[in-house]
Design a protein around this nucleic acid. Structure first.
Ligand SMILES: [Zn+2]
Ligand SMILES: [Zn+2]
Ligand SMILES: [Zn+2]
Ligand SMILES: [Zn+2]
Ligand SMILES: [Zn+2]
Ligand SMILES: [Zn+2]
Length: 757
DNA sequence: GAGTTTGAAACT
DNA sequence: CAGTTTCAAACTC
């Protein structure tokens, strides 16, 4: 509510953004402006679906179904969300008690705001065939939802934990918070199943399993999500990694998604063959990781009921854990939360087998809870608002959200929620609130952290908090100068800003400001880099060709940097300059304005061998860029997270794309696992540090995640400096960390250049 | 860490 | 739309 003026402004903005599902969703969630939300909210389902359809061949059909699902799902989520949102706004303790009770309460409340108009009921799922598509679409839709942290939270883990521990409402709730992180683990853990899931999604999912899940619990929504997200997330995550921009998301068609999934699946399979677990492979996925993983777990659960879960849990425990951490690391170094996972996992394993039914039940419950948590995160991001802001953008924005979801979680603080105990949710939330409201739900923070942080993650070793984000002194973080604000996220602990108003507490201000900025420039929060993904896979298939399909929408205006430094937004994003650029003396290693790519081959052809060299250098430079950070491989990953950490360029990065590619691909496999192998070791870290594991654990995965998230530039500010991974040496890359990355990159590399603009 | 450079964002 | 100022990051030392 806020002042009428604000409301009006917002409402107007909302109208604009109706398209963005996330936005709607958020609105609905946030208690603050029910009215607005309501209006805007309605679209949530419709919007989200609408977007989905575009992606898939048959949108309408799916749409209907999805909408149904969503409705339910939404209701649940909304309830949760509401609770959370309320909490956020008020900062009251949330989770613990609220969850349980909250649901009921929320439920009552929801109807009013939401009213999505959907029928919730009835048949959620249709025939198996449809279910497949349905699932996918949903997943996408969910993603949008997920954009918020929620997605992450829903994790199988929760179930597991629950099982282990007595079913106290309170405990559960508390755990739920932790679950978020756990969820991630779980997801990853599913490894073996993942493949199946993926395939299944492609093939057409088992209608049976899906149905079961959905129908079985009242929390259909949750289950639903899990299912949906599963397949879609994966694809999405891949996409994300591949595509830098949200735009890709839109572009991708169902077919593409499938391809992606398949691709992943194949990759995973390979891994498994080697003995690695899937988890790792998936984990590498950027955004989706958390979600995806969870989804998978869910899927498993659904299909196999308890059985599935068990596996997930067990696998997850070690492998997942790592994977999760990695991801976290990517985005953010410290994730204290994760620790808890370990313990929880162990417990899960024990219990899992026995109580399949109970588990399920629990799952649902937990899922719900987690959902609630999730909601918060979403809110945390301004993205919601932003998303809505630009109609066209919505998709783009969506992407960002997901990315954010990824998990960055790190936040320094992060509360130790984890294992320690579940400290009371309320307490946590309170604490978090101090820093950020997000704290309650990791996801929230995660999102926020995502983008900006990545840049500076370098601090890894040093301080957990290290990841710093913005350092605004005069803008109060309410202008695009602020990377956080520009990325649509709230400032958090790692930010070194002064007089910051970009915090959940000042949501109204933030949203109003956003609105104003958008009114001036509708694309202000849109992703800066666009990729035409349409053909991407096909087109690109091989690298060769042109380089970069992705391009900066607005182009740069460099005068002195020759587009060879990160002062250049194009270069920073890892994309070549385009006709939209007004740069002078462009030597962008990713492609010059004229279209010349400096790539090695080109170089030769072209006059300047120098360019070639430079370009190649750039690559390295790009990753390492200015600083000299050198962290081992990880660095790259870490850095990337923000936006694209990795250059858009797909394959061929100009210079020595070959090396990269090959290395990437090859490495992907190799890498994968190596961490996972350690099965036992995984857990360890506890926390850690990115730093510590960087090389081993993170490499690939993190990397992937990051990009995904980062992809949409809009969301993330720019990654400023990346640490250099030693990417340049192809050999190195290839081996470990590189693997996944490479794959991702290659995939992403979409072809066309984006002309869309 | 301080200081410089840079180009986008904001402002006029 | 161009010119100027402001700003925070990227970069340098
Ligand atoms: Zn800031
Ligand atoms: Zn900030
Ligand atoms: Zn700030
Ligand atoms: Zn430039
Ligand atoms: Zn440019
Ligand atoms: Zn240029």
């Amino acid at each position: 509510m806020g002042t009428p003026d604000k409301t009006q402004q917002i409402s107007s903005a909302v109208s604009k953004f109706e398209d963005s599902p996330v936005f709607n969703y958020l609105n609905s969630l946030s208690p603050i402006k029910p009215v607005k939300s309501t209006d805007a909210a309605q679209p949530f389902s419709s919007l989200s679906f609408a977007s989905l359809p575009s992606i898939f061949s048959s949108p309408q059909v799916n749409y209907d179904r999805e909408s149904r699902f969503l409705q339910r799902h939404q209701e649940l989520d909304l309830k949760n969300a509401k609770d959370q949102s309320e909490n956020e706004g008020e900062i009251t303790p949330v989770n613990g008690v609220n969850n349980t009770t909250g649901q009921n309460e929320n439920g009552n409340e929801l109807p009013g705001n939401f009213d999505i108009g959907i029928n919730a009921g009835e048949t959620f799922i249709g025939p198996a065939d449809e279910s497949l598509e349905f699932v996918i679409e949903l997943s996408q839709a969910l993603k949008y939802d997920c954009g918020s942290p929620d997605c992450d939270s829903t994790s199988p883990e929760a179930n597991a934990e629950r099982i282990v521990q007595p079913p106290d409402g309170l405990h559960l709730l508390q755990h739920s918070e932790d679950h978020e992180s756990k969820g991630k683990r779980d997801v990853e853990g599913i490894s073996g199943q993942n493949r199946e899931l993926m395939q299944f999604s492609l093939d057409g999912l088992d209608s049976k399993s899906t149905e079961v899940l959905i129908f079985s619990s009242p929390n259909d929504a949750i289950a639903f999500r899990g299912l949906v997200q599963t397949s879609p997330d994966t694809s999405s995550s891949l996409l994300a990694s591949m595509v830098p921009n949200a735009a890709q998301h839109e572009i991708l068609t169902a077919a593409e998604n499938r391809q992606l999934l398949l691709h992943q699946a194949s990759t995973l399979e390979q891994y498994e063959t080697e003995g690695h677990s899937f988890l790792s492979s998936e984990s590498h996925f950027p955004d989706g990781d958390g979600q995806t993983e969870m989804d998978e777990c869910f899927n498993n659960n659904k299909g196999g009921d308890a059985k599935v879960l068990v596996p997930c849990g067990s696998k997850m425990s070690a492998d997942l854990y790592r994977g999760i951490r990695r991801r976290c690391l990517d985005f953010e170094p410290a994730q204290p939360n994760r620790k808890s996972y370990d313990s929880s996992l162990a417990v899960q394993q024990v219990n899992d087998n026995k109580e399949s039914q109970d588990k399920r039940h629990i799952l649902f419950n937990q899922g719900v809870i987690s959902t609630e948590k999730r909601i918060l995160p979403g809110i945390g991001l301004h993205l919601n608002a932003l998303t809505s802001s630009s109609k066209t953008l919505k998709h783009e924005k969506l992407l960002p959200d997901p990315s954010s979801q990824l998990s960055t979680a790190d936040q320094e603080n992060l509360n130790p929620v984890n294992s320690e105990n579940e400290a009371d949710p309320a307490v946590k939330s309170l604490q978090l609130m101090e820093y950020d409201p997000t704290s309650a739900s990791m996801s929230y923070e995660e999102i926020n952290q995502l983008s900006p942080q990545k840049k500076r993650h370098r601090d890894l070793s040093g301080e957990p908090d290290s990841c710093k984000r913005c350092n605004c002194k005069k803008s109060k973080c309410l202008k695009l100068y602020c990377e956080c604000f520009a990325a649509g996220i709230y400032c958090i602990g790692p930010c070194a800003c002064q007089d910051c108003l970009n915090k959940p507490i000042h949501e109204e201000i933030v949203l109003a400001t956003r609105k104003q900025i958008e009114s001036r420039n509708p694309l202000a929060f849109a992703p800066k880099v666009i990729r035409s993904s349409d053909t991407m896979s096909e087109t690109w298939d091989e690298l060769n060709k042109t380089p970069a399909s992705a391009r900066h929408k607005r182009g740069c205006n460099c005068k002195k940097s020759n587009c060879l430094k990160k002062y250049c937004e194009c270069y920073q994003e890892g994309v070549g300059c385009s006709i939209n650029c007004r740069c002078e003396g462009c030597k962008n290693a990713f492609g010059t304005k004229d279209g010349t790519i400096l790539a090695g081959a080109d170089c030769e052809m072209e006059e300047d061998s120098e360019k070639c060299e430079k370009s190649a250098v750039d690559l390295e430079a790009w990753t390492a860029d200015g600083q000299k950070n050198m962290e081992p491989n990880n660095s790259v990953l870490l850095s990337m997270p923000s936006e694209l950490n990795r250059p858009v360029l797909p394959m061929g990065f100009p210079p020595k794309a070959k090396q990269l590619r090959s290395s990437l691909v090859g490495s992907s496999y190799s890498i994968r696992l190596h961490h996972r192998t350690g099965g036992s070791g995984l857990l360890s870290p506890g926390l850690k540090p990115l730093q510590s594991n960087p090389e081993d654990e993170f490499p690939g995965i993190l990397y992937g995640d990051a990009p995904t998230i980062g992809q949409t530039k809009a969301t993330s500010p720019t990654s400023k400096r990346v640490s250099p991974p030693h990417v340049d040496s192809g050999s190195t890359l290839g081996q470990r960390s590189g693997g996944r990355r490479v794959i991702l990159r290659s995939i992403p590399a979409f072809p066309s250049l984006s002309s869309h603009d």
